[in-house]
C-alpha cells in the first residue's frame, strides 16, 4: 500500500485512471496524487480547466477526463512529479507514457532506455519518442516513451 511502501496499489489507482472509452480516444492525464496536501499548481497549469479542487488547496486534484486534452502542460508543473499522460491511440499494440524527468543525462529522441515500474523494477527496454525540455520548464524535462499497450499503467519511470 502507498502509505507503507510508496507503491500505489491497483485499487488505490483505479479512481484516477480514466475509463476505457476515454483512454481509447487518445492522450489523457493520470494524476497520481492521492493525499490531501496543500498544493495546487496543476489547477492553474491546465489551459482547459480540466483540473478541479472542490475543497480548496488541500483537496486532491480531480481531473475531468472528458475535458482533458492530454496536452501535458500540467506534467512539469507538479512538484510531486505525480502527473503522467498516456496515449493508447499511438500505434496498434503500442501506447505512450509521458512523465517528468529531473536527472542527468537527459535522454534524446530515439534513444533506448530502461523502463521501471512503480517499485523501480526493470520491465524492459523502451524507446524515447519525444523530449520536451524548454527553459520555461526549469530543468524538469518531459519525456515520452513508447511502451506495450498493456504496460501503460505499470511503467512509471525510466533509467537512462
Amino acid at each position: 500500500m502507498l502509505k507503507n511502501d510508496g507503491i500505489i496499489s491497483p485499487e488505490e489507482l483505479s479512481p484516477v485512471v480514466p475509463p476505457a472509452d476515454r483512454l481509447a480516444r487518445g492522450p489523457v492525464a493520470i494524476i497520481e496524487c492521492l493525499q490531501d496536501i496543500p498544493c495546487d499548481p496543476c489547477v492553474s497549469a491546465c489551459p482547459v480547466k480540466a483540473i478541479k479542487m472542490k475543497e480548496g488547496i488541500t483537496d486532491r486534484p480531480l481531473l475531468e477526463f472528458d475535458t482533458c486534452t492530454g496536452c501535458g502542460l500540467c506534467i512539469p508543473k507538479c512538484p510531486g512529479l505525480a502527473i503522467f499522460v498516456v496515449n493508447m491511440k499511438h500505434t496498434p499494440g503500442m501506447a505512450t507514457v509521458s512523465m517528468s524527468y529531473e536527472q542527468l543525462p537527459v535522454p534524446e529522441k530515439g534513444q533506448e532506455v530502461t523502463a521501471l515500474d512503480r517499485s523501480g523494477k526493470d520491465v524492459g527496454k523502451v524507446k524515447v519518442v519525444r523530449v520536451v525540455n524548454p527553459p520555461g520548464y526549469d530543468h524538469t524535462a518531459v519525456i515520452t516513451i513508447e511502451v506495450p499497450a498493456d504496460q501503460v499503467n505499470n511503467i512509471r519511470a525510466i533509467r537512462v
Binding site: G6, Q35, G80, L116, S119, G120, A157
Partner: peptide, 12 residues
C-alpha cells in the same frame, strides 16, 4: 508526502 515517497520508490 506520499508523492515524494513514490518518486524515489519508482527509482528503486
Amino acid at each position: 508526502y506520499l508523492v515524494h515517497a513514490s518518486k524515489i520508490r519508482r527509482l528503486g
